[in-house]
Nucleic acid binder design. Structure first.
Lengths: 190, 190
DNA sequence: CCCTTTATTGAGCGATCACTCAACAATATA
DNA sequence: TATATTGTTGAGTGATCGCTCAATAAAGGG
């Protein structure tokens, strides 16, 4: 009986992810979203409910894709090589996305207001950190890094360095690829 | 002849700096500023001209104070020890300020719109990076670090790591002091 | 065809945005 | 005290914010 939507929902979420990622939460207005998604207000709210609800969908997609990408990298290259190549890859998205981490941007922007999206961003960051630590554990088990290191500690430091790299990568006057190389080669000394 | 202002201008700029630092550019409304500075709109605009003009004053103060603090640290402890203790100090501001770097927050929030404040934030970041590199040069000249390293490269990496640390320090579930220690002890291996 | 169900449209809601300005208050000089 | 100069006030500007909803369009089942 019913009429079908004229759009692909996942495609809209991806486009929303990119504009939220680039412009931030407060920096993205509903007019921006309506233009980017080619939706009138009524369709937008029928489809997603609110700006925040769509932001959450977009951020969840961002986070899940990031986890999948790193896991696939580990399956292909092994844990240590995955961690070594990840920094370079993560600042190479020439597309319509930003370089800085969307989770970090969301957290920093909204945590001061105790906004639920900040808490969710932090959960995603914690999950990613846990994945990174797992890869360090695997690398250690494989004898690729010394047994004296604490994987949790390494994961925490790695993620922190990655966040710094990705902020630096937004700057035109910074050679971010060089920083990525230094992060990677630092892992060889473990 | 004239009437004198009933406020201390520098004090207002410091209070503005803290609220801008914490809440960001879009996240700080004029109503917020009026409440924090105890100024009615007319006085605000007579004193500062615009929200952006005050933001610039606040950010400039933030940046200049940061430069002065690091220089004083170097005068007291010497270049390498200054760089080693700086990370711990910079995440210890228990006051009404944020942990993440105001320059990085400003740049990341406003650069996508090519806002003049983003360009100015980047200039401040570049100047701070230059100061850091100078300290590495001095440490190298004093034989505190090996001669095989490039001070410019070290400065770039150090600043990037610092930005990551300061983002991580906003998270309640992260032991930022531990990351700061790792950054510091990493300098001993140079 | 009709009818039911859902999608789409776009004018417009109240609230808030950064900001203005005419009226008034306070102070220093004459 | 009178006057000139500047600071302060707060109602109010047009624009934009996120969002609503009644009207209309489209599609499948009978």
């Amino acid at each position: 009986m019913p009429r079908k939507p004229s759009y692909d929902r996942d495609d809209l979420i991806e486009r929303a992810r990119d504009i939220f990622w680039r412009r931030g939460w407060a920096g993205t207005s509903l007019k921006d979203l309506e233009k980017t998604l080619d939706l009138r207000p009524g369709s937008f709210y029928a489809a997603f409910g609110s700006k925040d609800a769509l932001y959450e969908l977009a951020m969840d997609k961002y986070a899940n894709d990031g986890v999948i990408r790193l896991k696939e990298l580990a399956d292909t290259l092994g844990p240590l090589e995955a961690l070594k190549s990840h920094p370079k890859l993560v600042i190479q998205n020439t597309e319509n996305a930003a370089k800085a981490c969307m989770l970090a941007k969301t957290f920093v922007e909204l945590n001061i207001h105790r906004h639920p999206l900040a808490a969710r961003a932090n959960e995603h960051l914690a999950k990613m950190q846990s994945l990174i630590s797992d890869l360090f554990t695997q690398a250690q088990a494989a004898g690729e890094i010394g047994s004296q290191h604490d994987p949790a500690q390494l994961g925490r430091r790695y993620q922190s360095d990655l966040l710094g790299l990705r902020v630096s990568a937004e700057r035109d006057d910074i050679d971010a690829a060089a920083i990525a190389d230094e992060i990677s080669s630092g892992l060889d000394k473990l």
